[in-house]
Design a binder for these strands. Sequence first.
DNA 1: CGACAGAGCGACAGCGCCTGTCGCATCTCG
DNA 2: CGAGATGCGACAGGCGCTGTCGCTCTGTCG
Lengths: 332, 332
Amino acid sequence: MSETSIRYVRMLEQVARWPRRVSCRELREKLAAEGFDVSKRTVERDLDKLSRWFPIVSDGASPQGWSWSREARGFELPAMSPATALAFLLLNEFSRPLLPNNMQSFLDEHLTRAREILEQTEKNQPGMSHWSELVAVVPRSQPLLPPKGDAEAIRTAYDALLEGCLFEAEYRAASRDLEPKTYRINPLGLILRDNVLYLACTLFNYEDIRLLALHRLGKARLLDEPGWSPKDFQLREYVASGAVDVLEGPEIELVADFERDAARHLSESPLSEDQQLEERGEDITRVTATVRNTRQLRWWLHGFGAAVEVIAPTELREEMAANARALLKHYG
Amino acid sequence: MSETSIRYVRMLEQVARWPRRVSCRELREKLAAEGFDVSKRTVERDLDKLSRWFPIVSDGASPQGWSWSREARGFELPAMSPATALAFLLLNEFSRPLLPNNMQSFLDEHLTRAREILEQTEKNQPGMSHWSELVAVVPRSQPLLPPKGDAEAIRTAYDALLEGCLFEAEYRAASRDLEPKTYRINPLGLILRDNVLYLACTLFNYEDIRLLALHRLGKARLLDEPGWSPKDFQLREYVASGAVDVLEGPEIELVADFERDAARHLSESPLSEDQQLEERGEDITRVTATVRNTRQLRWWLHGFGAAVEVIAPTELREEMAANARALLKHYG
DNA sequence: CGACAGAGCGACAGCGCCTGTCGCATCTCG
DNA sequence: CGAGATGCGACAGGCGCTGTCGCTCTGTCG
């Protein structure tokens, strides 16, 4: 079989979505690296031909820069299966309130495709409910509205992180009235907490690690300077060290008495691999499990209100007791 | 330009991933529907040619069934951008403990691709940290382990829902010792709650809506009978009606005093569009917002422990007070 | 068991698409 | 202003693609 058709497909792969562009010269080199040895003229002709069938465009400059048009509806091979499309929809419903909206935007093209797939599937199955009627999410936690940010600036931060270079951006501090300040930022990693994305980084030439909330960035531009890593920096260790405000405590042996209804779901979604449930009659289930002693744990236990009584460890029980006394002071 | 190359791409689109298969005859009809009028022989030849360049295989039966091989690494056009790949990674980190594992599996091929994209990007940027060092998630809620289910059975449920037909499966009731029973199931919709997927459906010829936990299904097979909708059934309304155990209450005007640190994140991730914050000195922030009166709301308020005092509405305040008294009884 | 329809596939000839080359116009940058 | 690079029209040759034909094989139905 002629290599021609295959070359076309590879060319389409090499052309990236707008605003990234590729020149004929680069394209020819990349193809050569894959074993397709063709003349410059052929590459030019191919791009011209492909642009008649696919939404790829040239910017008209010299040398020409080719890219997939911004709103091009792409596709994948093999095509997304309807079951996967359904999973995407569910994921979207589920994660919308839990994820920063700028992160959602990265998944949008996949969601668009998922909807197309389902619509197509539906055409063969008239009479069924519409796909949007097939999935629903009952949220686990109180939905909070995700913060809005400057999409352009956030993308720049992603790119800088990936390319390992510095960037410059304005940052509005948390206190509202302060003027935004411009920083030279050396990105080290992304941290997602609740529905806020933080960028771990260093500023200017300082060595200390800072956290910037991505949605407070603005007016960003990439710099042509390589990034660097403070010695021995490891994102996971940094997070585990508690710098992000949530202490990863040591493991403890938790013992707590739950009202039976409250404990029921733990039999299917256990707290830990070694969790044990013990019915103690009179509507009480005793739960024993090895868990990390975190703020989340307290939050979760508090959530049950009076439906749970912590038995051990004693320090935790004492904390819960103190909290109960403080609560009663509020409500007299 | 000849239509030949375009036809190849369309053919690759029509061929689905294993175990779904397509025959030469079907393929020819589909191509004809798209305007590619070619002879049967040509389709046969094309498939043979394409299989030399792409991981598509024939099952050897007669008539032959063609599909993308099971472990084929697909690709998409235009290619996934590195920023999107990073978002996928973050999403995966984030959602792993919150989603049923069977749902994760549907996203696996996209994750594989995301990792490839990042690895390729990294090759041009040596010296940077590895991509897995670029993202971290600090969970918002107590991580529970997602329940494990029969992947095959779950996929069958998805397929039945999409194709609008009945299926048959075993179901293990929540009480462990009961024998699994076999049901004829008419799927109506999927509901995700916490990290458990439920299938809204009717059983046999009954009219009443039931919820089955997907991970308790086993030994499923599609039936060749069309599904049906109970009259006036609407998934969203069904969920909103509180059938899924979480009551969607009416809207209330919540007024509550938070400790200042506890309220800080509400300035960026507000409870509602109309939320108002008011500093009341002495480390107290008063929050006013219109929210739904749900169990989640109580859960969320409880989570703060003594760091929040509900002022209005009075019924809710009374509930919180009662809870405080009950708590103190536990801890003496 | 036999007949028939449909599918797979090798062979072949002709058309037309793809390709490298050449030359000229245009653009960019020093 | 000039050198080097890029864009593109023209052209001829080669070979890849296509429909047709015929043979073989498989599965099905009576």
